[in-house]
Amino acid sequence: MTTKTHVQTTINGEPVDFLCEPRQSLLECLRDVIGLTGTKEGCNDGNCGACTVNIDGRIVTSCLVLGVEAQGASIETIEGIADGTNLHPIQLAFLEGAALQCGICTPGFIVATKALLEKNPDPTEHEIRFWLANNLCRCTGYDKIVRAVQEAAKKMQEA
């Protein structure tokens, strides 16, 4: 009953192997097994988006992925968004736009926003709100988050 599975992945560009039980979610594996605690748990049923990560180019709620399913996958978490000590324009926009208060939802929003802007570099306010509707924030009322995404889009297009 305690058999663990060997899972080989690439996380934030680096090969990462880990052992996990089939009952452990990818979120549990990231946090408890690998030690990447930037991905947060808010509900454990896919409804808050705090655990959003990017798997093979597509965002998912990592609480609804089994760790064993990640075999062979390339995973991007909040820890991989900045380029070393250079923050990503989205991170800068969130900082400068005061788009976070408590900060617990911020990693999920940033990972989700990056996927949005890669797909749609110039989204409308509605497209931003629709894309981020699976990411709950209880502090900001979303106003400054939406503006930060708009600002990041502008900066990234200028770059």
């Binding site: 896919g46 988006g49 959003t52 798997i55 597509r58 965002i59 998912v60 709620t61 609804l64 992925v65 989700a112 996927a115 949005l116 629709f130 894309w131 981020l132 509707a133 699976n134 990411n135």
Partner: peptide, 9 residues
């Protein structure tokens, strides 16, 4: 169905 990250799966 669900939100964007749910639709990824």
């Amino acid at each position: 169905i669900g939100g964007t990250p749910i639709q990824g799966r």
